[in-house]
Design a protein around this nucleic acid. Structure first.
Length: 291
DNA sequence: ATCCGGCGCT
DNA sequence: AGCGCCGGAT
């Protein structure tokens, strides 16, 4: 009948013994020493370069990001340089990566860092998460990969590896998993550790080799708004602008639809959503990419 | 035809 | 809490 100093209601949090942690470190880091992928953003510790890579990697496979990442850094080697660029050119460099709104968020974040943080990418999660396009995941990734901070980075690959290797319940909450993940980071090796976990998850413990919960289904691309959005952006990148008909928005949609070979109502919907995302602007006489 | 995934908005 | 956003691989 000892009285506990702290009555913990839910102490189901798995604690990983030191020995188990060390075994896992050895297993993963030894594997990584022989099998690490050679990725361009791993050759640098420049926080800006890491920031760029993280924005791109949010949504795209590693192999497709590689050439975009290299071209981007060669076009805008510093955050100051990027911060002065026009949105249309940023969208052009992004074109083909997908999720165009994020190219603009990256530009906005660059401007904010130059204006408010003296050109320095923040070192703490709170400041990072206040920047557009940076959520919990990307903030953690920047802290770990740019600054080697002991901040748990948990994408779906790493989540799968941790659940598998530590025999955690598939239903574990994000918060509990983060608590476990933090204990597991080897001292002073956050960067290597997370790179290793990602590679291990991407090449060994793939979703196929493990039994992981069902995935959500993607609506078909054919006939979707995003298909129309993509066509409109490419059109604007090549033509510069679309003339706004005096007869109104509907007529404009119709004319554009004819050129793009897409149903007018879908073009109209796409224009509205692009406008909503700030990717296009309506001027007096024309539709253009933003300044 | 289906899969991949972090962020922001509602 | 759930949805929409991207384009290329398979």
């Amino acid at each position: 009948m000892q009285k506990k100093p702290k009555p913990e209601k839910k102490e189901a949090l798995p604690h990983i013994p030191l020995k188990t942690r060390r075994q896992l470190h050895k297993k993963i880091l030894t594997w990584y020493a022989r099998n690490a992928r050679d990725l361009p953003w791993r050759k640098t510790k420049d926080p800006y370069a890491i920031l760029v890579s993280e924005f791109m990697l949010q949504q795209t496979q590693v192999e497709r990001v590689k050439p975009y990442y290299l071209a981007w850094l060669s076009q805008w080697p510093t955050i100051t340089c990027l911060s002065r660029e026009r949105p249309a050119n940023v969208l052009r460099a992004w074109s083909g990566l997908g999720y165009n709104a994020r190219a603009l968020r990256l530009l906005q974040t660059a401007k904010r860092i130059v204006q408010e943080h003296n050109n320095k990418i923040p070192h703490n999660k709170e400041d990072l998460q206040r920047l557009p396009g940076i959520g919990a995941y990307t903030a953690s990734a920047i802290l770990a990969f740019a600054y080697n901070k002991p901040e748990p980075v948990i994408d779906t690959n790493i989540r799968r590896v941790l659940i598998h290797e530590c025999s955690l319940p598939h239903t574990i909450s994000a918060q509990d998993l983060a608590t476990v993940a933090k204990q597991l980071i080897p001292k002073g090796r956050s960067r290597d550790w997370h790179n290793a976990l990602m590679d291990y998850g991407a090449t060994v413990l793939t979703s196929k080799t493990t039994n992981i919960p069902p995935t959500t289904k993607q609506p078909s691309f054919e006939g979707s708004t995003r298909q129309a959005r993509g066509a409109i952006i490419r059109h604007l990148l090549s033509k510069g602008a679309v003339k706004l008909s005096r007869e109104g928005f509907e007529t404009t949609s119709k004319e554009l639809a004819k050129q793009l070979q897409i149903a007018p109502e879908r073009v109209a919907a796409a224009l509205e959503s692009l406008h909503n995302d700030g990717i296009i602007v309506f001027r007096k006489n024309q539709i253009t990419l933003p300044d």
